[in-house]
């Protein structure tokens, strides 16, 4: 497709020639935390100026065993029934799925960080989308794509997770809590805001 540059009026066969590269300008970094030495990370006073939020994480726990859970809550303390969630997991051998349909855990499982029994340098990743977080007319939904691959042992999987906070309040804070241990050195949790037109 031929394209005419709005900058210099040149006609080119490439969209990028003569024009600035397309920039998804609506994706902005809000804050980054490492969590080193702590069992939880909280992002507070989240600006209410975006449409969606995204967490991008590199994770490892200092806790015992092969791996530990990382759970998400929003807007402070929660009670049984505040959250519901589902998951679908593949570990290379078995597909498994489950749910916390009664909200008994009062949080949403979003990642599976490896822990002290796992070889050093191995981190899991998770990308979490938090949709319409500032809207005050709907419950808040979360979805995560997470995983880790060790090439050996039992603690390797790719996971699709989803959850809901049964509240229409805008999300102004997010807390991520490990089920055991602290965030290890090298962890990175970045919060981004996504704007709509």
């Amino acid at each position: 497709m031929a394209v005419v540059s709005i900058k210099n009026k040149l006609r080119r066969g490439n969209l990028l020639v003569g024009n600035d590269a397309y920039d998804p300008a609506g994706f902005e970094s809000i804050a980054t935390a490492t969590g080193s030495g702590a069992t939880s990370i909280t992002f507070s006073s989240i600006p209410q100026t975006y449409t969606h939020l995204q967490l991008r994480m590199l994770l490892r726990s200092t806790g015992t065993g092969d791996g530990r859970d990382l759970n998400l809550t929003v807007n402070g303390a929660a009670s049984t029934g505040d959250y519901k969630s589902h998951y679908l997991i593949g570990n290379g051998t078995t597909v498994s799925s489950g749910a916390d349909a009664n909200g008994s855990t009062a949080n949403v499982w979003i990642a599976n960080p490896p822990a002290s029994a796992t070889a050093s340098g191995i981190f899991s990743v998770s990308i979490v989308d938090i949709l319409d977080y500032a809207n005050t007319n709907k419950n808040k939904t979360f979805r995560a794509l997470a995983g880790v691959d060790l090439n050996t042992g039992v603690y390797q999987n790719v996971m699709l997770l989803s959850g809901v906070r049964l509240s229409t309040a805008a999300i102004s804070s997010i807390t991520l809590t490990l089920s055991n241990g602290n965030f290890a050195t090298g962890c990175s949790v970045a919060l981004y805001g996504i704007k709509s037109a």
Partner: peptide, 14 residues
């Protein structure tokens, strides 16, 4: 590690 589905079932492989 992969997790996949095609409408008739789900699978996983390494």
């Amino acid at each position: 590690t992969r997790l996949y589905a095609d409408g008739t079932g789900a699978g996983t492989a390494r």
